[in-house]
Design a protein around this nucleic acid. Structure first.
Length: 265
DNA sequence: TCAGTTGTTTATAT
DNA sequence: AATATAAACAACTG
């Protein structure tokens, strides 16, 4: 699930459920989810007795702050959070559990892409996030356009480059390009300034609406993601059968009528 | 059995 | 130097 809107949802979940709580202990059921030099003992010692504070988010990264260290979570392809009042019903993919004075937050992650980092101060936090660009939703469209303008090559590749702009994943990139009527393999250097600005505006509007709907973008019938990936699916705008290709190394769906291919090389 | 999966990193090639 | 591609990671679903 996790692209920017999903992680924002997780951030709000974390904030709501852990507000005012104190960490009693942490349970690491699978050390293979720990990143950097943190170990189960180090994590527990660092967090025991700490008060949970308002979490932040940059792109797909959740920064779970305490009155001491910050826990950094990345959810990979299928990670998530579950809050429970008691230790009952833990799932085998709950890799780390933050036990508080009134319930526990579980970091679930089936495939163990992503993981957990621990930063003892802002310097360590900056080190972990050194390659992460500005949050895609925190920038004005003109700023997004200016960043895109520094790049050449396939537009989808740039949208998904987390160092250029953080938060846009494969599904959202397809949605943005479909709404902007741009073929995923169009080249950035071919786009006009106005074209880039339009793309940046669509980017913000897709992210904003997905975040404000509070879950994801799949329910909206007028959007590509409502039908994306289904065999024989038709473009919600014009009814043309969607096509599948690979761009930026990822499965990509687009409408061949609304998103005309770039001129052959 | 095999292909496919919302992400990132690394290696390799162009 | 930038960009493009593929593989690897891990665990599951259909």
């Amino acid at each position: 699930m996790p692209e920017l809107p999903d992680v924002e949802h997780l951030r709000r979940t974390w904030a709501r459920d852990t507000a005012g709580r104190t960490i009693r202990r942490t349970v690491v059921t699978d050390p293979g989810i720990l990143r950097g030099d943190v170990t189960p003992d180090v994590l527990d010692a660092a967090l025991r007795g700490r008060r949970l504070e308002e979490p932040d988010r940059i792109g797909k990264w959740l920064l779970a702050r305490t009155d001491g260290p910050t826990v950094i979570l990345h959810f990979g392809m299928d990670g998530g959070l579950r809050w429970a009042e008691s230790p009952d019903g833990r799932h085998r993919h709950d890799r780390v559990i933050f036990v508080t004075d009134a319930g526990e937050m579980r970091f679930r992650n089936m495939r163990k892409l992503g993981g957990l980092w621990l930063a003892h101060d802002e310097g360590a936090l900056a080190t972990v996030l050194a390659q992460v660009g500005p949050d895609a939703l925190a920038l004005e469209p003109r700023e997004v356009a200016a960043r895109l303008r520094t790049r050449r090559g396939q537009v989808k590749s740039a949208l998904m480059d987390q160092a250029l702009l953080s938060g846009v994943g494969n599904l959202i990139a397809d949605e943005i390009l479909w709404q902007a009527r741009l073929h995923p393999k169009r080249r950035l250097e071919e786009l006009t300034d106005q074209g880039l600005l339009d793309l940046a505006r669509v980017t913000r509007s897709v992210l904003r609406e997905a975040v404000n709907r509070y879950d994801y973008l799949s329910r909206k019938r007028s959007w590509l993601n409502h039908v994306r990936g289904r065999p024989g699916a038709a473009c919600p705008r014009c009814g043309t059968p969607l096509e599948r290709t690979v761009a930026a190394g990822r499965t990509t769906w687009f409408c061949p009528a609304c998103q005309p291919a770039p001129p052959a090389a």
